[in-house]
Amino acid sequence: MTEQELLSAATEAVVAANEEKACEVAREAVSLGLDPLRVINEGFTPGMREVGDLFERGTMFLPEVILASEAMVAAVAILEESLPADQREKTAGSVVLGTIEGDVHDIGKGIVATLLRVYGFEVHDLGRDVPLTSFVEKVAETGADLVGTSALMTTTMVGQKALEKMLKEAGLRDQVKTMVGGAVVTQYWADKIGADAYAENAQEAVAKALELAQG
């Protein structure tokens, strides 16, 4: 297998959510003495990007995305063993996530949590109907880069505004970026309450989170 063929095989293994094949490709890359970072960045990562695109297009679904992610994680673990410690993959960032107090809708929030993990974030999912004080406490405890809140009702979205104030009062607002989402939440609302980002759907939430975490 040439290097190019191996990179293609890595991509295909992730898209097929085939953990066994992904690990086999990773082991072969190590045995051929290929640059592990190149195999990760040009083989496995494009596969995960394609998975994200297929999810966005509605031709690949959440359970398959998770299996694809597990395939990639297992393969990357093999490749990382041959990397110096300082070059090993770090998390993309740390996120505190939850559905705002009074709101029990958590399907969309759960999808966002899953995709954030898939893209390498450390996710502290507080669940649903989460008291505002719990968000503040978790941000303080973890030193998270981002806090994301979901609201599906006009009666609960006001909690997102209150959280902005509470984070300021706790002296944490300058250290953490805020993201808002949910069926009734809009860009206009995010701008109005001073949130750092709004995402229309889970895929966009990941893109915005990556942007904020790098920024």
């Binding site: 959440l62 359970p63 998770i66 299996l67 597990e70 958590d106 399907i107 929030k109 759960g110 999808i111 949590a113 899953t114 993990r117 996710v123 999912d125 669940g127």
Partner: peptide
Amino acid sequence: NPSDLLPAGKV
């Protein structure tokens, strides 16, 4: 709850 199981990888 699948919303708890899926993020935990319990497909």
